[in-house]
């Protein structure tokens, strides 16, 4: 059962990674990249390393996504034509 869950999560991660490249909207790409980290932290938890899972969830999917969002916001402000 556990290998099936891990493979399923891995497939979703791959799909999210490809989607992050092909999304037209940068916002959707950033969220998609955050989803990859979140699923990675779930996999770490299943594999029995809660320490790494906690770090990945807080830094990888939380703070990095927020910093990307801030940067996107800033870039949009600087551009005159959209």
């Amino acid at each position: 059962m556990i290998p099936v869950i891990i493979i399923g999560l891995g497939v979703i991660m791959l799909a999210a990674a490809v989607a992050a490249i092909y999304f037209k909207s940068l916002l959707a790409s950033i969220i998609s990249a955050g989803v990859i980290s979140l699923l990675a932290s779930v996999i770490y938890l299943i594999l029995g390393s809660p320490d790494v899972a906690m770090t990945e969830a807080s830094i990888g999917s939380g703070l990095t996504t927020v910093i990307f969002l801030f940067a996107l916001h800033r870039v949009r402000k600087g551009k005159s034509d959209d």
Partner: peptide
């Protein structure tokens, strides 16, 4: 228990955020 300085500090920073 699982955790330590890095994840804990990130959680505290998210509260300030």
């Amino acid at each position: 228990s699982p955790g330590g300085g890095f994840p804990g500090g990130a959680v505290v920073a998210s509260a300030f955020l």
